[in-house]
Nucleic acid binder design. Sequence first.
DNA 1: TCTTTACTGATAATTATTTATCAGTAAGAA
DNA 2: TTCTTACTGATAAATAATTATCAGTAAAGA
Lengths: 127, 127
Amino acid sequence: MKRQTAQRRAILDALEHAPGPLTPQEVLDAARETHAGLGLATVYRNLGTLEEAGEIILVHLPGESARFEVAGRGHHHHFRCQTCENVFELTASCPVAVLEGVTLPGGFAVKHHELTLYGLCPSCQDG
Amino acid sequence: MKRQTAQRRAILDALEHAPGPLTPQEVLDAARETHAGLGLATVYRNLGTLEEAGEIILVHLPGESARFEVAGRGHHHHFRCQTCENVFELTASCPVAVLEGVTLPGGFAVKHHELTLYGLCPSCQDG
DNA sequence: TCTTTACTGATAATTATTTATCAGTAAGAA
DNA sequence: TTCTTACTGATAAATAATTATCAGTAAAGA
């Protein structure tokens, strides 16, 4: 990452303004709003580069392919709308924090966790 | 599923005795203990058939391909060991149950959730 | 036991995602 | 402005997971 390109700015901008983590295809769609003609290979390349640089992080939801979000937003979880299928970052306090560092009955030592909530987002609850 | 075959019995037996949900490849490995010569295509076919029949259910962990477990075990979550990479079914009470049916700040109506815990299983904590 | 056909194993094909290739473009130092 | 080469877009190739194909096998009713 030795040069600053319009493509990379568009990609990072798309991630910064997204309501949650995006798939490479979603990044492409969003970034093309500011940089028409952007290619999918360029998206993949830059996602890799930005991840190595620590500017974005890889996020996995159950049963889905990779997503990315900007780094440094602290511990949080995600909400996936069953209707519009969009994924949102949640800011509510983590209900599983109490398990960190605990050893469960059975002898399982918990180091970290992934929680995904499913339901209806605000836009999909009307009508 | 009109006939009862030794292959299907071996597959279901493997799932019933597993400590957690298994991938198709893991099912193959385990079921070959009781039925050597079992083929991977047969495993996929029977997993599909058993799922349609409601005897097993599909389970997804973040970033991993499909797993299956026997149905009817009620609400629970899974633990993945960072060392041996095995997945275990947890019997401890769900720490996220309180969120069911709740509408979070921001207007997200929670219908269900997926929680995966990561850490060290009992066997991998020694040494 | 005989007969039908659902089921099986091996492997080719498919699907979805990600990576490699390569000629052309443009960032930014000189 | 010029020059070097990192970066880009289009597309082919590679990967991994799952499904289809097909000749042979075996479950179970007659």
